[in-house]
Design a protein around this nucleic acid. Structure first.
Length: 324
DNA sequence: AATGCAATCAACCGCGGTAAC
DNA sequence: CGTTACCGCGGTTGATTGCAT
């Protein structure tokens, strides 16, 4: 059968999203929750394909996204998860709740891959060479070493996760403040910022980006409007997690980073009071413990090692079989 | 100061899985 | 049970930015 186009080609806008479109989308999702993407363009009037809306939401507008400035821990984690899972970016992203698969994928392709190829930092060994058929024993020993290294590094990378999480949340809060401060005088929207760079709105989530992101002004515009929206919604409604509620992070001055960042910490709820983003594809940190332990138990299961290592090189190939 | 090149990243495209009919 | 439509994922592209010459 012929797959119909996901959306009508004509009349569908492509390219970078404008702040106004972001606002429309965010407002709609705050009202209805994410999902039913098919209906989003028609209901919002956005001249965007449903996929584009979903992508925009999941990669940029969704609360709790941290952008840029990958930490060493995150880097290590990505390297080893990539070695374990292959290019299953969504799976990898599920272990980095604040990162999107797209972001991780880009980071891998632009930074890590090259880094590893050029010798890397040791933690991420460049792709294991194929075993010369003549020296299988040696190859196997090497694999075992790699596995052990991977185990150790994975543990290393995972254990401090909780440790650096909290500071990050503080950072997010700080970022909100910083961004607010940075734009304090900004007021007027007038940006000569390019549309493309403007789409990095959520970059305010990272403190450094918060200071000077070209999107700041545009997200500010959105947030100002959202502020009004939240007000209309009855921010007091108390819903501690509504964008209005998130304002507890920064008094009064609401900026879009609260929508994008603050929400993560406070689990926004919708107007009905149900968790607004519980149906997010991103699992909660707690939920991640499960697959994590699966990985670890698998890692510790010696019998299955060669299943993996024989079916895939450590870095490039896609593992054929996963016990989880 | 101008130009070319490389790096980066947002967004698109196509495919696979799956729920609904 | 087959078909259809939707959603999500991964690969890729194209625009933009930053740096070197």
């Amino acid at each position: 059968m012929v797959r119909p186009p996901c959306c009508d080609k004509e009349g569908v806008k492509k390219g970078p999203w404008t702040p106004e479109e972001d606002l429309v989308l965010v407002s709609y999702i705050q009202e209805h929750g994410p999902g039913n993407w098919r209906a989003v363009p028609t209901r919002t009037g956005l001249m965007r394909c449903s996929k584009s809306c979903r992508l925009r939401w999941t990669n940029y507008l969704r609360p709790g996204i941290k952008r840029g400035n990958f930490t060493d821990q995150e880097e290590k984690l990505i390297i080893h998860l990539q070695a374990l899972l292959g290019n299953r970016w969504a799976a990898i992203a599920s272990y980095l709740p604040e990162r999107t698969d797209n972001d991780i994928k880009n980071y891998w392709n632009t930074h890590l891959k090259r880094k590893l190829q050029s010798g890397g930092d040791g933690a991420g060994k460049p792709q294991a060479q194929r075993p010369p058929s003549s020296s299988k024993g040696q190859w196997e020993r090497r694999l075992q070493t790699d596995i052990n290294m991977a185990r150790r590094a994975l543990r290393e990378a995972l254990t401090p996760l909780d440790d650096f999480k909290q500071p990050q949340q503080q950072d997010a809060a700080a970022a909100v403040g910083a961004a607010g401060a940075a734009m304090g005088g900004g007021g007027g929207g007038g940006g000569e910022e390019s549309p493309a760079s403007s789409s990095s709105g959520a970059s305010q989530c990272s403190p450094s980006a918060a200071a000077a992101g070209p999107y700041v002004l545009t997200t500010e515009n959105i947030s100002r409007m959202l502020d009004g929206w939240a007000g209309r919604k009855g921010r007091g409604g108390g819903a501690p997690g509504t964008p209005g509620g998130a304002e507890s992070a920064s008094t009064g001055s609401s900026d879009a980073s609260e929508v994008s960042c603050g929400g993560a910490a406070v689990a926004p709820v919708d107007v009905a009071g149900r968790p607004l983003f519980e149906y997010e594809t991103k699992p909660t940190v707690a939920a991640q413990q499960m697959p994590l332990s699966a990985i670890e138990s698998w890692l510790f299961d010696d019998d299955s090692h060669f299943h993996y290592v024989q079916s895939a090189s450590l870095l490039d190939a896609t593992p054929m079989d996963y016990p989880f």
